[in-house]
Structure formats: C-alpha cells, structure tokens
Design a protein around this nucleic acid. Structure first.
Length: 810
RNA sequence: GCUGGAGUGGCGGAACUGGCAGACGCACGGGACUCAAAAUCCCGCAUCCUUCACUGGGUAUGAGGGUUCGACCCCCUCCUCCAGCACCA
C-alpha cells in the first residue's frame, strides 16, 4: 500500500465521532479487578482550557490508559470547581447571572476535553455550584457544628478591599491579596465562622510520615513549615495588671530577659495604657496592615508598667513592639537580646540592656558591650542562679518543671497554623446553613431543610457586603427553634470547602441521600495517584487532609489520608512567564488542536521536559512532534500490507523494539519520565525506517502492533487509527499492555570500554559474563591499548564485568 | 535572612546504581526532489588543535579544591538562578 499523508483533522474527527456517545471510560461497580483511582485537580471553569491544563490532564490520561491496559478497574473522573469570584465579576461586567455564565463555560470546556479525548467517566461529573453538591457542604458544616469543629467568633480578619471580602491566612501573599498582588490586605474585626483545623495540627503533622516517599518532599516540607509546630513553655510574669503570660522556646535564656514586649493589639494595652499610648498602638496596627511586602522597621514604646521575672525576681519594663504578633503564642514575649537576634535589634535600638547567659559549649560568655549580634545557639547556661552550668536542653527541662510545680507556667506547644476562617461576604458560594434569631441566637438549619438554596435572581453590586443581604426573600425566614422571625446567615463558604472533599463524591456522584455511600469509599480510597500544580501544596492539600480526618471522626470513612501518591507537575511557561489571562500569553488548547491535533499537543506536553519540571511552550517544538507522528503514520500505511523484505534486519530491529517496550514499561512503573519514553519511540522509529526494506513480513507485523501499543497511552487518536488499520476492532486502550520479551531485548554481547588512565581508547564486544581476568588479557592485547602501554609500567588494571577495563600506567 | 531545588551545546533536555558526556527533539548549515515553493528525504552540527583526506589528539557538565583507577553523579568552599516561608519568639 502506498503511504498516506498524516491528516490529523481527518483521523481525529473520525474517532471523535465514533467515540462521541460511547461509554468508553466508565469505571466498573462491583468489579473483581484491582482498582486504580487516578485523579487530576478539577479546574475552575474560566471558559477555556489552556496548555497548562492539557499538560496536567495528559499526564493523568496516559497513566489511566496504561493502567486500563494493565488490567485495572480505573476510576478517572473530572469535575468543576464552579463557585468563586470570577463568576460574580463577570456578572458585574456584562450582566450575566453567575450560574448561567458558569454552566456555559463548563459546556465550552467540556467540548475541549472531549476533543482531546481525555478518558474521563463523565457519568461521575461533579459541579460544585449545583445544589446536589453544595447541600453536602452544608451537611458537613452542620456535623462540624455539632462536633464543635465549626464555631463562630469575632476576629480580626484579612480583608481585601478589591475582593470586598475576607481572605484566609493562606490567601494572603506578602501582605497582599493572592488575587490582587498589589492590594494590601486590611485588618477588620468581623463575626466569622471558623473550622478548628488546629485541633488536627498534630495529626496532620504526624500522618505525613505515611506520605513520605509517595508525596514530593517539597510539598511535605511546605506543609510542615505551614503547620509550624514549636515546643516551648508558657510563663507568667507578674505585674500590677495581673499575670502576663509569654510563650518561649528558650526558657533556658530567661535569666537574660531584659524586658517584656507585647503586641500592639494585646489586651493589656487597652486596659492599662494611657490614652495617648493607646493611640500610638493603634497607629502601629494600622501601619502594619497597610504595609506591603518588605521589611518592617522595628518600633516600640514603654508601656509604663513593670513585670517581674518569676525566676530571678527581677522587675522588667513592659514594652509594646510592632514586631510582636498577637496571632501567635500569647501575643507577648520575653525579650532576651543576648540570644535572639530580633530582640537584640529592638533592645539595642532603645538602649535596653543586653545580658548574655548562654556560652558556647567550648567558649566563653560573650561580653555584652562588644556584641554585634545575638548568640542564638544552645550552649551552657551561666549567671542563672541554680541552673548555671547546665546545658541548654537540661535547663529547659528543669525550668519548665519548676514553673509547673510552682504554678506560674507549663510546657506548651504552639502552632503557626490557625483555624480556617471560611466566611466570605459573597454571593457565589455555598450558603452557610444557620439563621440568626433574636431569641435563640445562632440556630443551625435542620438537616431536613437542606439545601439552603442560593437565590437565582440576585443583584450583584460589588459593594462591601454580601449581595445576599439585599434579597429579603432569602434573608427573612423563621427560626427553626422558636418559629419566630429570624434572619439567615448571608455569608457563604470559602470555595476551598468545595474542593476539600470533591474526590469522595466522584465515587458516588448521584447519591441524593448522603454525600456518598461509605462502602464505595472503602473500595476506591485512597486515591492511588493525584496530579496537580504545586501551587496547591498547602492550601488545598492541607484542607483536603483535614476534611478526610473529620469525616473519619464523624464515622463516615475509615481512611485517615485521602491521597496515597501525590505528583506535582511543573508549570507551562510561555515567553518567560507563567501562562495567565492577565499576562496575555495563554496558549489556547483548541487552537493547538486545530493546527497540529490533540495527539501532537498531548505528546509535546509530555515530551518537552520531565513532568515535574517547568516546560517552555514553543510552536517549533510541537512542529517536531507533529513531524514524528506523520512519520509514524506514513511508515505504517506504506508497510501495512507490504510483501516484506529478506528478514536480515529482523534480529536487530526486534531487539530494539523490545528494548523500547521495556523502557516505556519501566518509565510508567517508576519515574514517569515520559520525555525519555517518547524519545525512545523516536529512536526506534529512526531505526525502523533505516532498516525498513530488510524486515520480514512477520517481523513487520509485530513491529506495527507493538508500536501501536506503545503510543496508546500518549496519542489515543493515532494509535486507535493504527489499531483499526491493523484489522482489529474495539478500543486499543482496552487491550492488554504487551509484555516485553526479555530474551529478544537481550543484546548479543557486552560492549566493553577499554580505558588507559581513565581515557577511552577502544571498545570490544564479549559474551556476557566474561570474567575480569579474561577482560584484562583482552584489553592488553588490544592494538590501541598496547601501543599506549608500551614502554610504561602497568600500575594496576581495573576490570568490571560487562562494563569496562581501565589500565593504569605510569 | 531561613528552608528546599537546580546550574550540561545556540535552545528544551538525555546520561536511572561512581564506568562511553551531549540520546531524542528544536534551531541552524548543506544537498536531493520541484518550473518554483510547501511538504518530504539524505548529510552535517560542543569546542580547539592536527590531517589533502581517512584520521588522530587536547579541552569541556556554574567556579575552585578534594576523594577515587575513574566524578555531571560523592565531599568541602564559593557564585548564580528558581521556588516556598519571611519578624512565628
């Protein structure tokens, strides 16, 4: 058969039509096959897929298809993170109702998904803005309220004036909003709903040990830092205003404390500071909140009060310092300028004495007058009453014990992690299911009344409060307890709530009686492989882990962790910047599919770099892949029913064929460096073309079939076309992944590198396993080697079986 | 500042366990086919020296040192870049 040109449009259109209404990718219920749950992070439905998405999904899809071929019952679902601010902004801008806008975007993106033939089980699709989904957010919220995990408090919150809403701590980047990177976040006091994630801090930390090895170290490190567990002690300093509690990790330095510093928001300021000092503290708070990224200059003032060091009995001045955080520890510290750099800077600035009390294990105590920086290491405690001479660690233990005995302190653990504020003053989110009753206070909506529906018709104003407040039909209700008039809560939930458990819903997506059937979770969980961007290393991935633990404690599920293996793929860079709408460098997936085809786009996304690394998008790069696919196609079409050659190249070609298959299989099972898998297929093709006329018909048949299989996880359209051309029926990815033939893949002999003084001077082929002694003899007999050795003394000869010989001469 | 990670041709990257540095692709140069172009195919492509040529040799994995018969790989010092955290007491 003469070769045919590669027409990606024709091939992809044909199979697209063929597959359109077929349930090809459904996961089986009640299967006896082993399960494999592969998941890619669900996208926000912005309206278009770009190449960054394509990369994420191409990795997951290759894996899903490979696992199908390996005989697994694969669950590979997709959904939409459909609540969130852009829908409201779109509504403001062009008057489209958020739901309508969102659903339309979803339809558009789904078309692109199908065009790329990603193997999702669309029967399990989850759309988080639909009541069938968000009612379970509300249900979980009520459970958490019962358990005391959800609670309400007035708190200083991060407020973004641009978003006109509250941000979680995790959403504040360098003092600015994560969505508006130049807008400083303000502090406001509001009644907010919180989830007590801090109660799980230790578990979140401890269970990371189960994840080690299967999650990227980088992600685990970031989570550990985020949780920020510190062991130390709380100690009461006595003062005229009552006991003042500080948190310290270095109680061993307490004899070196020269003042106590409180945060400007500390209650002591409000109760005991003179009015002008209170104004000064307030100014400090405001200055800090409006300060953007960069260094905050240390500032402070004397409060006019003293506190007594419970160990030394010494009176110390109480200062207010702008670098002391109310939100961490007790909001008050003991300043030990001799052994803490921050305290050193503050105290020297205000002339507060420096008193060194720790010396290096093998050195002398520093001289206070000549210090230029604090000595922050552990050492030997000096000038510290009965503790003098003890190593730091022991001093800490004894001092803490004494504080506990005498009731002025205790061992304490402080976390950097704070409770998760979930209230948002927004319309397009899950309504928080409580009502405010003048008689009964805050009353949960009974489960039977769920879901609390978001009203469809709403005037989005963009002003500070939730648009829901302006909808009397929503706000005005009756108290479920007393039946009197009451107001609904108008805050909605943070959208990270939606994504904290969506992957459980995939297991039972149409359940209307419960979030899911626990038996199904038992079968499918944990997720075998989760794939997504590293930008979610802390937010989404910590919340998800927390939610799983809560569901377990409610008694719904048994697994403590949702994700067994995590993979973070690198970003796609275009023109030196991360692709984003605001930078205007987005490469649209449909455009690429039109020009070069979905197969080429997918293959290039995998070929350009190892999946965990960033990858530069280049039009030229995808051209190369497109040419490769064309060569494969033309090679196949012109050889598919040819007469065959004399077979003189069969042995070499089949060896290469099975070596390539072995490499791809190994890449899937270990390191996922699909760029080298694809390079190996290219190498194979180069050899196939070179030896084309010398291949027997039987060998050619085997070549074409295995080549088709090798491409099946990466290029579904082309491989299906080839499979069809080869006279087979049915989807190629439902065939069994072929086992490579180890005997065929075996090289004829070992190539031994011959070196003199570590430099390669020749090589020779010997039977595998040829012994070292024999290799040495062979090497010395080698013409090139012997000429270089002649006239010199052989110092030694190193021989490594099947690898090399190195003759060392002098 | 702290904590991770990374530096290899013009570019993206390979070299998996200390054993042939530069696979594969892009770009580039030359050639074939063509009236011409596109497409396609063939050849070359780290660098310097040597040779008419075949060839042969030296130098190269951010810089400098070390360990080793042998180092992109291990150790030490330094430089640069990227990411995360950033007064967390």
């Amino acid at each position: 058969m003469p070769e045919k040109p590669y027409d990606h449009r024709e091939i992809e259109a044909r199979w697209h039509a063929e597959w359109q209404d077929q349930p090809l990718y459904q996961a089986e219920e009640d299967s006896r096959k082993p399960k494999y749950y592969v998941l890619e992070m669900l996208p926000y439905p912005s309206g278009e897929l770009h190449i960054g998405h394509i990369r994420n999904y191409s990795i997951g899809d290759a894996l899903a298809r490979y696992q199908w071929m390996r005989g697994y019952n694969v669950l590979h679902p997709m959904g939409w993170d459909a609540f969130g601010l852009p829908a409201e902004n779109a509504a403001l801008k062009n008057g489209r109702p958020p739901r309508e806008w969102t659903l339309e975007n979803i339809e558009k993106m789904k078309r692109t998904h199908r065009r790329f033939a990603f193997s999702y089980d669309w029967n399990r699709e989850v759309t988080t803005c639909e009541p069938e989904y968000y009612r379970w957010n509300q249900w979980f919220f009520l459970k958490m309220l019962e358990k005391g995990i959800a609670y309400r408090k007035k708190a200083l919150v991060n407020w973004c004036p641009q978003c006109a809403t509250v941000l979680a701590n995790e959403q504040v980047v360098n003092g600015c909003c994560w969505r508006h990177e130049t807008t400083p976040v303000e502090q406001r006091a509001l009644e907010q709903w919180f989830l007590r994630i801090t109660a799980y801090a230790d578990q979140l930390l401890d269970d990371m040990r189960q994840l080690e090895g299967n999650w990227p170290d980088r992600v685990l490190t970031m989570q550990r830092n985020w949780i920020g567990r510190s062991e130390g002690a709380e100690v009461d300093f006595t003062s005229a205003a009552g006991p003042l509690r500080v948190f310290t990790t270095r109680i061993d330095t307490i004899y070196g404390a020269t003042c106590v510093i409180v945060a400007p928001e500390h209650p002591l300021v409000a109760t005991h500071a003179a009015p002008e000092l209170q104004a000064q503290a307030k100014a400090m708070v405001d200055a800090r909140s409006s300060q953007g990224p960069g260094d905050v200059v240390k500032e402070g003032f004397f409060l006019g009060l003293h506190a007594t060091n419970p160990f030394s009995g010494e009176p110390l001045p109480i200062w207010v310092g702008n670098f002391v955080l109310m939100g961490y520890g007790t909001g008050a510290i003991m300043a030990v300028p001799g052994h803490d750099q921050r305290d050193f800077e503050f105290c020297t600035q205000y002339g507060i004495p420096v008193v060194p009390v720790i010396r290096p294990v093998d050195g002398a105590l520093a001289d206070a007058d000549n210090m230029t920086e604090a000595f922050g290491d552990d050492g030997i405690v000096e000038n510290s009453g009965p503790y003098s001479g003890l190593p730091s660690a022991e001093a800490r233990a004894r001092m803490t014990a004494r504080a506990e005995q005498e009731g002025f302190g205790k061992a304490a653990i402080t976390f950097r992690l704070k409770d998760w504020g979930i209230s948002r003053q927004r319309y397009w989110g899950t309504p928080i299911p409580v009502v405010h009753c003048p008689v009964d206070g805050v009353v949960p909506v009974p489960e039977s009344q769920l879901p609390v529906l978001l009203p469809a018709e709403i005037q989005i104003t963009g002003s500070g409060r939730s648009p829901l407040e302006n909808d009397p039909a929503f706000v005005e209700t009756t108290c479920p307890r007393c039946g009197g008039p009451a107001r609904r809560e108008t805050d909605t939930m943070d959208t990270f709530v939606d994504s904290s458990w969506y992957f459980y819903r995939y297991c039972d997506a149409r359940n209307s009686a419960a979030p899911y059937d626990p038996a199904k979770i038992d079968y499918w969980f944990p997720i075998d492989q989760y794939i997504g961007g590293v930008e979610h290393a802390i937010l989404h991935l910590i919340y998800s882990r927390f939610w799983t633990k809560v569901m377990r404690d409610i008694g719904l599920i048994r697994n403590a962790e949702p994700v067994r293996k995590m993979f973070t793929q690198g970003m796609v860079i275009n023109n030196g910047a991360k692709m984003s709408k605001s930078k205007g460098n987005v490469v649209n997936a449909d455009d690429v599919a039109e020009k070069h085809g979905a197969d080429a786009a997918r293959l290039f996304a995998l070929f350009a770099a190892p999946p965990e690394k960033e990858v530069d998008w280049t039009d030229a790069g995808i051209e190369g892949i497109y040419r490769f696919l064309g060569r494969v196609y033309r090679y196949a079409t012109r050889n598919i029913d040819g007469a065959g050659g004399d077979g003189s190249a069969d042995e070499a070609v089949l060896r290469k064929l099975h070596q390539t298959l072995r490499k791809i299989t190994e890449d899937f099972d270990s390191r996922w460096h699909f760029n080298t898998s694809i390079a190996a297929v290219m190498e194979l093709l180069n050899e196939l073309i070179a030896e084309e006329s010398r291949l027997s018909k039987a060998a050619m048949t085997q070549v074409l079939e295995l080549l088709t299989f090798m491409l099946a996880p990466f290029a579904p359209y082309l491989s299906q076309e080839l499979w069809d051309m080869l006279g087979h029926t049915g989807p190629v990815f439902k065939q069994s992944w072929p086992a490579y033939d180890a005997a065929l893949a075996q090289e004829a002999g070992a190539e031994i590198v011959l070196q003199v003084n570590g430099k390669v001077r020749g090589r020779t082929v010997v039977p595998f396993g040829t012994e070292a002694e024999q290799l040495k003899t062979l090497a010395l007999a080698h013409e090139k080697v012997s000429s270089l050795v002649a006239g010199k003394t052989v110092v030694k000869i190193i021989a490594v079986v099947d690898k090399l010989v190195n003759v060392v001469v002098k």
